[in-house]
């Protein structure tokens, strides 16, 4: 009976995951491997393609007639960042006004990323509320768990969208190359590289969406976040989800040695990535005079 309960919990969290997160790993991997029919993503690999694709960033549906002519063929081998033609990127620009508009374009792109992140926080919040017992916790503790867990969750959610050459954005409709992100001005260029390094390693664990759902719940239910008022019920909830995750991994990945232990180790790496990320955002606030941080993200990052 206990195993049946743990399986029911896994199913429940998987359903919530599918309900609240618009781009699943299954769909993302199909896009990245070129197996989703004719719908290759629009590729952003330099300033010119960013300018062309800018209007579609964060659109859930790119208008087909506008999208298609500009789509750079991803090729049968899937989406990669190579062989995409001459580099017209920021490094090639010498004109001062061109440089100025590139700077503004980068800042606008950063603001789009912030909007999507804020929407992501909303999605994660809805997912958290679906974890059995979560909404019965002290409301202040719910806030604390989200404040400390949500960036970790968003980083994990990014991994399935990435390969070594780039990442899907805009609900899977745009592929942005890693090289292009690295070519942006400091500190923008430093923001994504640690996430790529983490994701490429994380993806070798080959979790599927049902495993991911449980892992995200485990992260959210961390009883060691600073300022929690009532730790015990959180730890009890996490314990149950951990059991469910352990059973799920045994059934779903019978040949993967020590997968459960390997996954738990990733939680330590994640904390360092979030610390570095918040540090970069604080740096940005000092260096970019025109930057305004989204109020929800400000709330989350303040005193983190």
């Amino acid at each position: 009976p206990e195993a049946a309960d743990l399986r029911a919990l896994a199913r429940h969290l998987y359903e919530a995951y599918l309900k609240y997160f618009p781009l699943t790993k299954a769909k993302a991997r199909a896009i990245l491997s070129g197996k989703n029919g004719d719908n290759a993503p629009f590729v952003i690999h330099d300033m010119k393609s960013l300018m062309e694709g800018e209007q579609f960033i964060n659109c859930r549906q790119i208008p087909i007639q506008e999208h298609q002519p500009q789509t750079l063929s991803a090729g049968l081998g899937g989406v990669t960042g190579v062989h995409l033609g001459p580099d017209c990127g920021i490094l090639g620009m010498t004109n001062i006004s061109e440089q100025g508009s590139a700077d503004a374009l980068e800042l606008r792109f950063f603001h789009s990323c912030q909007s999507r992140s804020a929407e992501g926080v909303r999605e994660v919040t809805e997912f958290a509320k679906s974890i059995p017992g979560f909404i019965n916790l002290d409301l202040n503790d719910q806030v604390t768990l989200l404040k400390y867990g949500v960036i970790e969750v968003l980083i994990i959610m990014m991994a399935p969208l990435m390969n070594k050459d780039g990442t899907l954005i805009s609900y899977g409709q745009i592929f942005m190359t890693r090289e292009f992100l690295k070519s942006l001005r400091k500190p923008f260029c430093q923001m994504m590289e640690p996430k790529f390094e983490f994701s490429v390693k994380f993806n070798t664990l080959e979790l599927d969406d049902s495993d991911m759902a449980l892992f995200l719940a485990v992260i959210i239910l961390s009883g060691d976040r600073p300022g929690l008022l009532n730790v015990k019920p959180i730890e009890q909830l996490q314990e149950t989800v951990l059991h469910s995750l352990e059973l799920q991994l045994k059934l779903n990945h019978p040949d993967s040695v020590q997968l459960f232990a390997k996954l738990l180790q990733k939680m330590t790496d994640l904390r360092q990535i979030v610390t570095d990320h918040v540090h970069l955002i604080q740096l940005l606030k000092k260096t970019e005079v025109d930057m305004c941080l989204h109020p929800l993200l400000q709330e989350i990052m303040k005193d983190l």
């Binding site: 909303r122 919040t125 809805e126 806030v143 989200l146 929800l296 709330e299 303040k302």
Partner: peptide
């Protein structure tokens, strides 16, 4: 509570849209 106003809103309003 004031410090995390939007998070509180997100947690408490399950159906009403929150202005993000």
């Amino acid at each position: 509570k004031e410090k995390h106003k939007i998070l509180h809103q997100l947690l408490q309003n399950s159906t009403s849209p929150v202005d993000l």
